[in-house]
Computed example of a mutant assay.
Amino acid sequence: MSSPSAVATADYVHGYSERETARLGDQADTLAALLHTGTAYPAGSRVLEMGCGVGAQTVHLARSGPGARITAVDHSADSLAQARARIAAHAPEADVEWCHADLFDLPFSPAEFDHVFVCFLLEHLPDPRRALAVLRRLLRPGGTITVVEGDHGSALFHPASAHARAVIDCQVRLQSAAGGNALIGRQLHPLLARAGYDDIAVRPRTVYADRSRPTLVDGFTRNTFIAMVEAVRDEALAAGLMTEADWDRGITDLHRTALAEGTFHYTFFKAVAVNRADTGLPAPGR
């Protein structure tokens, strides 16, 4: 659900508008406890955040691991500029080095990092296994990778609506057409295993919102999930995925899940794995 701009060839289906930047910030702040609990890097450890985007997750990484040395990488110079400003405003004491680079052309040495953190990046890549293999070579033996991804197939809501389900499916189909996978959360374990990691542990991180949880209704249901789906309206209509009338009905129905009688459920998947010491895997491009 976040920025994929770690790779020059990735087509970010959500776009780079000011609205999208705000959405990413709302998402990171609303879900900080859910996604970052259990992730706290020791002081002095070398942490690579791949695909940092506008720094929405970088702020929370820095807060949960004060003293860690974070290298935040993104392919978009504009996103990095926004990330710098966000850190300066919200975590000025953080030790962050910024790097403008492509995931498949990184200026780092093998085993340079103790930990790698990847959040909402793999969903936008045409070859996520290759990306994970590249990142494994930058980890010291015994170092860890943490991967967080969503899965739009996990969205459950009330009132039920086939039209609301259809607009979500439009986003999934457009992301697939752009070379990504909005259902990747369920695949993290096999992807990490194929990339050569050991001790893989994947745990669901579930968001559930109803009127008793107004912060989640606003921060997640409305401002994160529905806003993300609404942003692909023009693309969906241009591609002929739905009629305008059906789209508008679907979005209206989706908004009903954030009203007094509505509920919304979504599952993120958080994986932690260890870099094994052998180097017997084929090159990342194979």
Score class of each variant (00 low, 15 high):
residue 6 A to S: 07
residue 7 V to H: 05
residue 19 R to K: 13
residue 21 T to Q: 14
residue 24 L to G: 12
residue 25 G to T: 05
residue 25 G to C: 11
residue 28 A to Q: 10
residue 28 A to D: 11
residue 29 D to I: 03
residue 31 L to E: 13
residue 35 L to I: 12
residue 39 T to A: 11
residue 40 A to V: 02
residue 43 A to N: 04
residue 45 S to K: 08
residue 46 R to D: 13
residue 49 E to N: 11
residue 49 E to A: 09
residue 50 M to P: 02
residue 52 C to R: 04
residue 60 H to T: 01
residue 66 P to Q: 07
residue 70 I to L: 15
residue 79 S to G: 04
residue 82 Q to H: 14
residue 86 R to N: 03
residue 90 H to M: 11
residue 98 W to I: 03
residue 100 H to L: 15
residue 109 S to L: 09
residue 113 F to Q: 03
residue 114 D to G: 12
residue 115 H to A: 15
residue 118 V to W: 08
residue 125 L to K: 06
residue 127 D to T: 13
residue 127 D to I: 03
residue 130 R to S: 14
residue 133 A to K: 11
residue 134 V to R: 12
residue 141 P to I: 07
residue 150 G to I: 00
residue 151 D to N: 12
residue 152 H to S: 00
residue 155 A to S: 05
residue 162 A to M: 05
residue 166 A to V: 02
residue 169 D to T: 10
residue 171 Q to M: 14
residue 173 R to Q: 15
residue 174 L to C: 01
residue 175 Q to G: 08
residue 194 R to L: 04
residue 199 D to Y: 01
residue 206 T to I: 13
residue 208 Y to D: 00
residue 211 R to K: 06
residue 212 S to Y: 11
residue 213 R to E: 08
residue 215 T to G: 10
residue 228 M to W: 07
residue 229 V to C: 03
residue 255 H to L: 11
residue 257 T to C: 15
residue 262 G to S: 09
residue 265 H to L: 12
residue 267 T to F: 02
residue 274 V to H: 05
residue 280 G to D: 14
residue 282 P to L: 13
